[in-house]
């Protein structure tokens, strides 16, 4: 609903929607279950990841199988800084992780954005598996297949642990989440954001009206990797352990799934998708040992029957029922 600012008739709806969701998000720790704090911290992290991912998939039309690697890179940067260098101040650690990821994203992206569709997907897959193999092999730095266990970094001298004080961590995640959403929303609605959408719809035309297509794709790639890096950096202290699996393309499949589940044509889609995916996945794995089957079937069903995702489908329904206007 946030996405519809600009249509005065819908201002009220948008305002109400934003307020309700903010209040709901703030209230989660009041449920009093440290498990839910943990779960929703994770959900917000996935949301941020999907939001960033959607800059490529939804707004630029590029499907990447390599975003697990950037997520993993963020997580490993934090883990290595904290354990190998004993560098613990929270914000700088996160900052360095994001910068490192964005830098690598810039290098990889520069090579990848020349290609489209399946070739782009395959190239990102190749790079991500290359890093996977490296992380697996560089035992001294990465702990190989066992990964690295990390103690959480400090925030303003406040020692927090993901297990003992999950509510703290939840609010930290929420703060990052809100900032990311705000920045993301500004970018999407900026001329640059529109230019990306033009590239997605019609790269030829975009070029013809003077948009430097390849350079903008590259920027979009960097932005989305920075988001992945942030999500990964927040993920590491939450779990207290990172493993090379994060770099695997199957892990990147999760963000793809989350984005699609929410609906990638709409700004709100991946945000909702990230939350729903996380909660659903954790729930399904908890109740059945057939969870790969259920998740796979869910993915198939979404692809075939709800290609617009949750938010997209809801929008269409709303539009038909009560005549709310506007798309994007």
């Amino acid at each position: 609903m946030k996405a519809k600012i600009g249509w005065t008739t819908n201002r009220l709806h948008s305002f109400a929607g934003i307020t309700i969701s903010l209040v709901a998000l703030f209230c989660i720790p009041l449920l009093g279950s440290s498990y839910y704090d943990f779960l929703f911290s994770l959900a917000l992290i996935y949301s941020m990841w999907a939001l960033g991912y959607n800059f490529l998939l939804g707004y630029t039309g590029l499907l990447s199988f390599g975003h697990g690697a950037f997520f993993g890179l963020g997580a490993y940067t934090v883990a290595i800084l904290v354990t190998k260098f004993s560098f613990k101040p929270f914000l700088p650690v996160i900052g360095i992780a994001v910068l490192a990821t964005a830098f690598l994203g810039a290098v990889i992206g520069y090579l990848c954005v020349r290609y489209t569709e399946v070739y782009f997907a395959l190239l990102t897959l190749a790079f991500s598996m290359f890093f996977y193999a490296l992380v697996f092999k560089l035992y001294y730095w990465t702990g190989g297949s066992d990964g690295i266990g990390i103690r959480p970094p400090d925030l303003f001298g406040l020692r927090f642990s993901a297990i003992e004080y999950p509510a703290h961590y939840y609010y930290i995640t929420l703060a990052f989440f809100l900032i990311s959403v705000y920045i993301g929303w500004r970018i999407v609605n900026s001329p640059f954001g529109k230019a990306l959408q033009a590239i997605r719809d019609n790269p030829l035309k975009a070029e013809a009206i003077g948009i430097p297509v390849r350079r903008y794709k590259w920027y979009a790639f960097i932005i989305s990797t920075a988001y992945s890096g942030l999500a990964g950096a927040l993920y590491a202290p939450l779990f207290g352990h990172v493993v090379p699996d994060l770099f695997h393309f199957l892990f990147a499949g999760e963000v793809l799934f989350a984005t699609l589940l929410g609906g990638y044509t709409i700004f709100l889609g991946p945000i909702v998708g990230g939350i729903v995916f996380t909660v659903a996945k954790r729930y399904i794995t908890a109740v059945t040992i057939y969870w790969p089957l259920v998740l796979g079937a869910l993915l198939v069903a979404v692809t075939l029957f709800f290609p617009q995702g949750i938010v997209g489908t809801t929008y269409s329904l709303l539009r038909r029922k009560i005549g709310i206007k506007g798309g994007e």
């Binding site: 279950s33 440290s34 498990y35 943990f38 779960l39 994770l42 990964g147 297990i163 779990f239 207290g240 352990h241 493993v243 699996d245 954790r282 794995t285 908890a286 040992i289 969870w291 790969p292």
Partner: peptide
């Protein structure tokens, strides 16, 4: 009974759920 699939993150998640929920 919970299945972790051999994944540490799922394992930790299950553990938390088992203890708190």
């Amino acid at each position: 009974v919970k299945d972790s699939g051999g994944k540490p993150d799922v394992c930790v998640d299950h553990f938390k759920r088992l203890v708190t929920e």
